[in-house]
C-alpha cells in the first residue's frame, strides 16, 4: 500500500545545500483508534524508522512514533559535493521496507 514520492534537485553546484522532500502514502495507524462497529482497538501499524543515504552513507535518519500523521511528509537538507545516488528507506513496524531512489549531478 505504501507509495513513496521524493523530490531531489537534478543538478547542484559543489558545496550547495539542497532541500529534499519526501512523502509516503501510509495510514500510520496509531493503535489508539477503535473500530466503530466492533468497538475493538485497531492494531498499531506505523512506519517507525526513516533513513536517507547519500552514496551509501546515512546522512539523515529519524525514529517515528504513533503521533505522526498519515501520509507523512518529511523535508530535510543535505550538503552535496559530488554526483551520486540518494536512497530513502521507510521501515515499517511489521518489518516491511519501502524504498525510493534519486540521482543528482553535481557540476
Amino acid at each position: 500500500m505504501a507509495k513513496a514520492r521524493v523530490k531531489v534537485p537534478k543538478t547542484a553546484k559543489a558545496g550547495d545545500v539542497i532541500t529534499i522532500k519526501t512523502l509516503i502514502k501510509h495510514k500510520m495507524e496509531s493503535g489508539n483508534r477503535k473500530d466503530k462497529k466492533t468497538g475493538k482497538k485497531i492494531p498499531r501499524h506505523i512506519i517507525d524508522k526513516f533513513t536517507a543515504k547519500y552514496n551509501g552513507e546515512v546522512f539523515f535518519s529519524s525514529d517515528w512514533e504513533g503521533g505522526v500523521s498519515a501520509n507523512p511528509y518529511c523535508a530535510f537538507t543535505c550538503k552535496v559535493d559530488k554526483s551520486g545516488d540518494f536512497e530513502f528507506v521507510w521501515h515499517d513496524e511489521k518489518g516491511e521496507e519501502y524504498k525510493a531512489t534519486a540521482k543528482i549531478t553535481v557540476g
Binding site: 507509495k3 514520492r5 523530490k7 522532500k21 512523502l23 502514502k25 498519515a70 501520509n71 511528509y73 523535508a75
Partner: peptide
C-alpha cells in the same frame, strides 16, 4: 503540489 497529500489520489 509535492506536500499536498491529495496528489496521491490524483496519481
Amino acid at each position: 503540489d509535492f506536500a499536498n497529500g491529495g496528489m496521491l489520489w490524483v496519481e
